[in-house]
């Protein structure tokens, strides 16, 4: 068997897996972004209870391993009568986990917006919400985008773990193909290359151009 005939026989499986991985990636990215923003702002709150809740969230999801969180959601929650679809459990776990890392990035970025910007917004008697939305967050975005790019790659890599709860993503398809064909180098190798192309030629350039666009809009390019 040549690699070409291997691809023509099983290429469809890889494509199916890729689509599921792409969906997992987009869903968990959306969830992680929202959580990061909400908990990042909560970390900055002066209300002890609000801040405490955010600290607990961040420390809990950063402190325990993603695989542990995934298995806990998948195997333990049903015991309490909450049964979630594997697909949903998958991006829920990845989103919650990466969101905790993201929350810290958001907090750090907002804190590093120069003090004068806060004061100027205050002097113009902007409401706190408006100040955040119009002045602080756009500048924080520019500061955090490079680190956020790395986090998005981490997120893409994390989605591979959902294969372990039988979500038929790229990793899962590769595993299945390996146990039916025993062609380990080709199956796992192909999957590795697809992940690499996804990260290097899709995610990274997108994040780079986003950085450029944001920097230009802030008049900093």
């Amino acid at each position: 068997m040549t690699y070409i005939s291997f691809l023509s026989d099983y290429g469809g499986r890889f494509v199916d897996g890729m689509l599921v991985t792409a969906l997992q990636f987009l869903c968990s990215l959306a969830l992680a972004t929202v959580l990061a923003l909400v908990f990042g702002l909560m970390l900055l709150s002066s209300n002890a209870a609000v801040k405490g809740a955010a600290v607990v969230y961040v420390e809990f999801f950063r402190g325990t391993s993603l695989l542990v969180q995934l298995f806990w959601l998948f195997f333990v929650l049903p015991l309490f009568g909450i049964t979630l679809e594997p697909f949903f459990t998958g991006f829920l776990a990845v989103g919650l986990n990466i969101g905790a890392y993201g929350a810290q990035l958001v907090q750090g970025a907002i804190k590093s917006v120069p003090r004068g910007q806060w004061e100027a917004a205050y002097a113009l008697s902007m409401s706190p919400a408006k100040r955040m939305r119009r002045i602080i967050i756009p500048q924080a975005l520019v500061i955090m985008l490079p680190a956020w790019g790395n986090l998005v790659i981490e997120l893409l890599k994390s989605t591979a773990l959902v294969a372990l709860i039988a979500v038929p993503d790229l990793m899962f398809e590769a595993k299945q193909l390996n146990s039916s064909t025993y062609l380990s180098t080709w199956t796992f190798g192909t999957a590795l290359v697809i992940y690499y192309i996804f990260a290097r030629f899709l995610v990274t350039p997108t994040m780079r151009s986003l950085e450029h666009v944001m920097a230009r809009r802030m008049g900093r390019s």
Binding site: K157, S158, T159, L161, L164, S184, F188, A191, Y196, A199
Partner: peptide
Amino acid sequence: VEFLRSTPLVLQIFFVYYVGPE
């Protein structure tokens, strides 16, 4: 280095474990 950093560790573990015997 770029390759190792941007592909999932769990897949790399499978790769190393199953490719050797081939």
